[in-house]
């Protein structure tokens, strides 16, 4: 029903990319991934795709399994069951070497200078020294850290350490990005710079998966969402797709008392307050019958679908 703009059909940032064969797309595909910690199943049969050129937000409460899933994608945690695919085939260590990864817990060598250790991390990823230096210098400038290049990491504020960590993941044209809470601890200005940077990567076709607690941010930035709850995917798709998946509520405001709506067929009444009702339409056509009945009884001041916010959807799917 509603506008289906940025799904896999190739609209949005990936326009022009649809000629690619499916097995060639720069997608990270997670298939039936599970992870057992003793008795606890932290991640249970999780499947989703992070499409090349798209920002995918990974949402879920604490302990939902986001970090465990990301660690399995990056190969730092072994997989109990399931597969991680890259371009349609099982991912290899060499593939991951070209990925930019930001782990949940931040940490760098406290005693080493910012530039030196970023170049070191870049070289480990196989980026040449000169290329790494150029990329790091460029990123430091963009994140306002150019003057701190020679300072030891431990002399930086936490927010600035976070930026250095971001550069560690983003430098040297990674072929995919997996970022665990990249926005936490950033001031609004840094959030914007970070969002711009991520957009640059998606615009060259790179898939980006990032987890976040900040739902407004996810809604603003992401083409796609994967909602995780207690180790399973409870919702996945574009924000609009998620909206259509949840039952849409309508608000009806009448001139007279609206108590009779409680008994209307095919309608679930959520709340009645004088002439205002919040309701869910259960049967197709029930909304038309309801509106006719309302007009018969008097004036209808307002009848409109309530566009749910992402956090409402989130609460809905994770409850």
């Amino acid at each position: 029903m509603s506008q289906d703009t940025s799904t896999a059909t190739g609209a949005g940032p990936r326009s022009g990319a649809s000629h690619r064969h499916d097995s060639q797309t720069d997608d990270i595909e997670v298939r039936a991934l599970s992870r057992q910690f003793g008795e606890i199943r932290a991640v249970d049969d999780v499947s989703f795709t992070v499409k090349g050129g798209e920002l995918t937000g990974f949402v879920g409460g604490n302990g939902a399994g986001k970090t465990t899933t990301m660690r399995m994608i990056m190969g730092v945690l072994s997989i109990s069951a399931g597969d991680v695919l890259w371009r349609g085939r099982p991912i290899t260590a060499l593939d991951r070497r070209g990925f930019g990864y930001m782990p949940e817990e931040r940490g760098l060598y406290p005693d080493q200078a910012v530039l030196d250790q970023l170049v070191y991390l870049g070289r480990l990823r196989g980026i040449g020294t000169a290329a790494a230096k150029a990329s790091v210098t460029d990123h430091l400038e963009r994140l306002g850290l150019a003057e701190r290049a020679k300072d030891k990491v431990q002399t930086l504020s936490l927010g600035n350490q976070q930026r250095v960590q971001i550069i560690a993941a983003l430098m040297g044209r990674p072929q995919a990005l997996v970022l665990d809470e990249p926005f936490s601890g950033l001031d609004p200005q840094a959030v914007d710079s970070m969002a711009d940077l991520l957009r640059e990567h998606t615009s060259r076709g790179v898939p980006v998966l990032f987890s976040s607690h900040q739902l407004d941010l996810v809604e603003r930035l992401c083409e796609r969402l994967v909602v995780l709850s207690r180790g399973t995917v409870v919702a996945a798709g574009t924000a609009d797709e998620l909206r259509t998946q949840t039952v849409v509520r309508h608000r009806l405001v009448l001139s007279g008392d609206a108590g009779w709506v409680r008994d209307a067929p095919g309608i679930h009444t959520v709340d009645v307050d004088g002439g205002a009702v919040l309701l869910e339409v259960l049967d197709q056509g029930a909304d038309h019958r309801l509106l006719s009945e309302a007009l018969r009884r008097g004036d209808v001041l307002e009848f409109a679908p309530q566009r749910p916010s992402l956090s409402e959807i989130y609460r809905e799917v994770t409850k």
Binding site: Q175, H201, V206
Partner: peptide, 28 residues
Amino acid sequence: MTTTVNRPDQPGHASRSNDAGRPWLIVA
């Protein structure tokens, strides 16, 4: 967009250095 965009790793791989095969040397 051109097809080069679809292979984002290629320019990256081109700049990957020779010591990629000997990461222990970088660590050492």
